[in-house]
């Protein structure tokens, strides 16, 4: 719908004969001002603050803050965790959407609901459940300890917690879209003699590629930025189990604000890049990811 009312347009005949599907001009202006003020106050200002605080002490200290060994180690760990968690959830998303969208089976709606479950669990609880399983006093703690395996306060715990909180991202983009697309394309390909794998890679995947990318982008942003869940299982060992968001916290709590905001600015940059890609995908491929935007 492109028939929204331009702000500066008013009918020459004046207010008496104005369009009945919009508000009076003063009301329009007031509402726009409220919305802009609200978004500026709550969204733009914080973002702006991050970058400003980051460079406040000068670019020299900014550079040293993001190039010191602990910061580098945090970046490496963050990238590594995302490099495991995102592909894992991507494969899961494909499998789940294939099963849910292409087949009818009992319990399908329950499965659909369960996939979204991690979204309604507090990040802190997402970390906690792994501590209960793998922590020293956890159900598998003694077994793991006797075999010299450490999950909690180590990288595997961070990876697990990250997978948990980013679990639904890809699946929930793909499931509605693939359900909408139905099974006709696949049946056509199979009837033409394509194997199941070829059908999947040559027909199904191209049909959902933009929705897939959309899900991956959002999944990645959350994976790199997750704080609560990771915080619970990390143990905060500098240079070893600190991801970038945890590094921000540590620096901040040490009153090293400039360094904290410097690392934070990198994460904010990641957020901006994510938004740009996301918006670009939405503008160019609205129809191909539309299913997900309907919630």
């Amino acid at each position: 719908m492109s028939d929204a009312i331009p702000l500066d347009l008013d009918f020459a005949t004046g207010d008496r004969a104005r369009s009945v599907t919009t508000e009076r001009r003063p009301v329009r202006i007031a509402l726009i001002l409220i919305a802009v003020a609200f978004l500026t106050l709550f969204l733009l200002l914080p973002l702006f603050a991050v970058f400003l605080e980051a460079v406040r002490a000068g670019f020299g200290s900014y550079w040293s803050a993001i190039s010191e060994p602990d910061a580098i180690a945090a970046m490496k760990l963050t990238l590594m965790v995302a490099a495991i968690a995102v592909p894992a959830n991507l494969i899961f998303g494909l499998a789940a959407s294939w099963a849910i969208a292409k087949f009818e089976f009992p319990g399908k709606s329950v499965l659909n609901t369960l996939i979204d479950l991690p979204f309604s669990v507090s990040p802190v609880i997402s970390g906690l459940v792994y501590v209960l399983l793998f922590g020293l006093q956890g159900y598998f703690g003694p077994y793991l300890q006797s075999h010299g395996i450490q999950i909690i306060f180590a990288v595997p715990g961070i990876v697990l917690a990250t997978i948990f909180v980013t679990f639904p991202f890809v699946a929930r983009e793909l499931v509605p879209l693939m359900q909408e697309q139905g099974t006709q394309d696949e049946e056509a390909a199979l009837s033409l003699g394509a194997s199941g794998l070829k059908t999947f890679f040559l027909v199904t995947l191209p049909n959902v590629k933009w929705a897939l990318l959309y899900g991956v982008i959002l999944c990645n942003a959350r994976a790199m930025g997750e704080f609560g869940a990771v915080s619970v299982v990390s143990g905060h060992i500098r240079g070893k189990t600190n991801t970038m968001p945890l590094q921000v916290e540590i620096l901040y709590n040490e009153y090293n604000f400039a360094a904290a905001f410097a690392v934070a600015s990198l994460l904010a940059l990641l957020a901006l890049v994510t938004l740009v890609i996301k918006v670009a995908l939405e503008w160019r491929f609205t129809d191909q990811i539309a299913a997900s935007r309907r919630h």
């Binding site: 914080p46 605080e53 916290e249 938004l275």
Partner: peptide, 21 residues
């Protein structure tokens, strides 16, 4: 586009930014 910022911005970053403001 910016409405989605809270989805994309890591919560810790949002936390320290809001505190600073």
């Amino acid at each position: 586009a910016f409405v989605d910022l809270p989805f994309a911005l890591p919560t810790a970053v949002a936390g320290i930014a809001l505190t600073a403001i």
